[in-house]
Design a binder for these strands. Structure first.
Length: 645
RNA sequence: GCCGACGUAGCUCAGGGGUAGAGCGUUUCCUUGGUAAGGAAGAGGUCAUGGGUUCAAAUCCCAUCGUUGGCUCCA
């Protein structure tokens, strides 16, 4: 007999050799039907694998990550089986479960797999599901594993096996398909009731663009047909929040082929929104001791040679601008830090002056590869809400924490709850990617980790994700369909102060090197506005809305009164416009609802007689009539409460 | 940059080897209406651009540009 410990710490005895499935059955038939995988001493197992030692277990159903994972991973194998049947000789890379579904990277040789081939692959998968083949696990020696895949002619699997320890290698087979795999898998294909292959993409083998590009097929499966329908409906719904769509509908921004790709044109309402965000941050920064500076859009190439950016990015960025005078070379400003370093050097600084905080809404230009451009979230010309803090080493942590506070404050005001704070450290295996001494890197990384710990900030650590000159703390926020974008960023830098030979005079009358913090709470105005649009679906908070109210005259007879209302509201700092089209009130309401203007003010004979407006809130409906001044007061109160979070 | 998809009126899209369609928007006229689409008439397109095939190309083929789902990259 063995002892099985459950998550609630209860312990039951079972015969040695019991399986996860058997344990689930012993609890309830329903659980047995739903269990997909099992964690045995925190290792994920098949529910058919015999447990022979005392263990603590967790059973996973569809609702658990681990359950879905087994389901989708098994689906990936199923797709591979279908592919092998349809395309004999196809070679396989890796095929994992992902957050939503699964993919498989395959090398179809001479064949090209297109979107239009997906239905026939789906069809094959459905045929294979009907066979209800079991997934068989098999331990195998490294030598045998290599032999099998060598015979099959699959060099990708051989490469993977070569990186594995002998004694840890397992194969899984279902039907005619055998794959190198750690598992776990479903007992058989029967639970897979709905299949949808979503897209075809190119993906470099092992993520290395110097290696062969394989064909990646994305798919998703569900235990019920209705769940697939719901998922697809959800995706459709999410697409309605796409900032590119809403940006067009609400006339916030546009692009022009003639101006160039990745170069956004802000339309009046978008510019208004963006300016308001800038003013908001300006005010916040003023309170936090920042000084606003302004620097030019180009700088001598030499400036970026000094900063190290030219060596790192020069070849892959916009090329130098040449002037009629010989030998002059300028670069479009790809970042503001070198300029700010030169501002710091404008005069000598005492330790008493520090920290010095230079802020600038600095527009920068970066040559992003064409395939990387994406709406407003990835562009070639954008404006960073940048600032550089020059401080003494003993001030670093406090400064860092202050910046975290600014970012969290902004997220709170704008209701961004679902964010990830990511600490990006350098890859210790590959230090040539970075500049600066090991000692400085260690100090900088330590400072970030300590500051986060002190703030009690929940973080994830990514090694190898640091900037080339220093580690950073990034705040990642998801868009409508779940893609993560970096918004706020804080970076510690010991390198630029050294390269620019920045100094201050200490209490000891000696020269010392300041530490630098790069930070941008929004990240860039473009990306921030994009994510804000997707979060709000274009229904901006009142304080940000380009138009806060629209006055709707019942008939053209009341257009003059409507204009008077707008003027009166303007005196109370309320942004209002008139819809004076020759349309019925129902039509005006509909159109302005769709424009997401927060308040509609309906005016006709009754209102004109009493200096009133009939108030209607966007998405909510009639709020009754009130004096114009009262409405303005209510609106300003609402704004105050939005900004008091 | 790479793999896949797409590009038709301001917007959303249908069509498709025989010379251009719808709805919305826009313009004019009628209507002056009280809480989510009033009516009529008109204007508007070198079917992304450049080649090729063909008696004939918006339609088929190639290239380029742009957009897009991914990959890589992201100072």
């Amino acid at each position: 007999m063995i002892k099985i410990t459950f998550p609630d710490s209860s312990v039951r005895e079972y015969e040695s050799g019991i399986t996860g499935y058997d344990i689930a059955s012993s609890i309830s038939p329903r659980l047995a039907k739903e269990v997909l995988s099992v964690s045995v001493n925190d290792e994920l197992w098949d529910i058919t694998r015999p447990i022979v030692n005392d263990s603590s277990i967790r059973l996973h159903k569809w609702d658990d990550e681990e359950g879905k994972h087994a389901f989708w991973h098994s689906s990936a194998h199923l797709m591979a089986e279908a592919l092998e049947a349809l395309y004999p000789g196809m070679k396989f890379g890796i095929g994992p479960a992902i957050e939503n579904g699964f993919y498989y990277d395959v090398d179809p040789g001479e064949e090209i797999i297109k979107d239009s081939d997906l239905p026939k692959i789906e069809q094959k998968m459905k045929e294979l599901i009907a066979l209800k083949n079991g997934y068989q696990r098999q331990d195998i020696s490294k030598k045998d594993a290599l032999r099998i895949f060598k015979e099959k002619g699959d060099e990708y699997k051989q490469e993977l096996i070569n990186d594995l320890e002998d004694g840890t290698i397992t194969l899984y087979s279902q039907g005619n398909f055998t794959d190198l795999c750690r598992g776990p898998h479903l007992p058989d294909t029967a639970p897979i009731k709905a299949v949808k292959l979503l897209s075809v993409a190119g993906a470099y083998w092992r993520g290395d663009e110097k290696r062969k590009q394989l064909t990646r097929i994305y798919g998703i499966t569900f235990p019920k047909k209705s769940m697939l329908d719901e998922y697809l409906a959800l995706l459709e719904e999410a697409k309605k929040r796409d900032h590119r769509k809403i940006g067009k509908e609400l006339e916030l921004f546009t692009f022009s082929q003639k101006v160039g790709q990745g170069l956004p044109l802000w339309l009046p309402k978008g510019a208004d929104l963006r300016t308001r965000l800038e003013m908001f941050l300006r005010k916040l920064q003023k309170k936090s001791g920042y000084d606003q500076v302004i620097t030019p859009h180009i700088g001598q190439k030499e400036l970026y040679v000094t900063s190290g950016h030219y060596a790192k990015y020069g070849a892959d960025s916009f090329q130098p601008i040449n002037t009629p005078a010989e030998g002059e070379e300028f670069l479009l400003k790809p970042m503001n830090c070198p300029h700010h370093c030169e501002i710091f050097k404008n005069k000598p600084h005492s330790y008493k002056d520090l920290p010095i905080r230079y802020a600038e809404f600095g527009t920068v230009y970066r040559y992003e590869q064409s395939g990387e451009l994406h709406g407003l979230t990835r562009v070639r010309g954008f404006t960073q809400d940048d600032a550089h803090i020059f401080c003494r080493p003993d001030q670093l942590k406090a400064e860092f924490i202050d910046v975290i506070d600014i970012i969290l404050y902004i997220f709170r005001i704008l209701d961004f709850k679902d964010y990830t704070a990511q600490i990006s450290l350098r890859d210790p295996e590959n230090t040539t990617k970075y500049i600066g001494s090991n000692e400085n890197w260690d100090k900088a990384e330590q400072a970030i980790i300590e500051a986060c710990a002190e703030k009690g900030l929940e973080t994830v650590v990514e090694t190898g994700e640091a900037a080339f000159y220093g580690p950073k703390l990034d705040f990642m926020v998801k868009d409508a369909i779940g893609r993560k974008w970096q918004l706020g960023t804080i970076q510690v830098d010991y390198n630029l102060p050294e390269r620019f030979e920045l100094e201050y005079v200490g209490a000891d009358d000696q020269k010392h090197r300041p530490v630098m913090i790069h930070r941008a709470p929004f990240g860039s105005m473009e990306r921030f506005v994009a994510v804000l649009i997707e979060h709000t679906a274009g229904k901006f908070p009142l304080w940000l809305a380009p138009e806060q109210a629209v006055v709707l005259p019942i008939s053209e007879k009341f257009n003059d009164y409507a204009k008077k209302v707008v003027d009166l509201l303007d005196e109370q700092d309320v942004r209002a416009v008139v819809d004076d089209r020759n349309e019925k009130i129902g039509r005006k309401i509909r159109d302005n609802e769709l424009k997401r203007i927060p308040y509609m003010l309906i005016v006709g004979e009754k209102e004109a007689e009493n200096d009133e407006v009939s108030v209607r809130k966007q998405g909510e409906g009639d709020r009754g009539s009130m004096k114009i001044a009262k409405f303005a007061a209510i609106l300003n109160e609402e704004i105050a409460s939005e900004l008091a979070k």
